[in-house]
Amino acid sequence: MLWLILLCIIKGVNGYDAFTDGVKEGIKLSVSIFPGMMAMILMINLLQHAEVFVLLSDFISPLIDFLPSEVLAMCFFRPVSGGASMALMRHILSLYGPDSLYGMMASVIQGSTDTTIYVIALYFSSVGIKKIKNAMWIGLFADLVGISVAIFLTVQFF
């Protein structure tokens, strides 16, 4: 921030005008992303409260039985909602301890990818894209790779 102000003074840029113009743009952007945001939150909340994630992790946990159910649930939440996976991570950290294997695993998973569904919904709705082609699948595939690598690495190196 400070060096930006200094740069404005050095280059003789009208920093005040630039800042306020930017904020104006920001408000326009916000209005255009609000509907998409609401639709996404509705979907995520419905899925969460209908316990669809529980169903999913119950379905998969016999296949991956070396992970505790909290870590597994976090794997599902990570691409869907940053807030929910962050909350789960804190839960895992306090349950197993931050320096334990699972605490470490949760931290790495949290750092390994971003919330795919949120980003896709937000960015595409902001410019009015209806057909998203295969962006969702590629994004989820990248998440799968990231989370698998995260689990593999923590088991290997920790």
Binding site: C8, A18, G22
Partner: peptide
Amino acid sequence: TLDFAIPIILTTCFFEGIMEMAKRC
């Protein structure tokens, strides 16, 4: 949605301002 959106909208506006400055510099 409002609880979720308000902080994001406000930070968006702020950083949009900063970015406009960075762009003009």
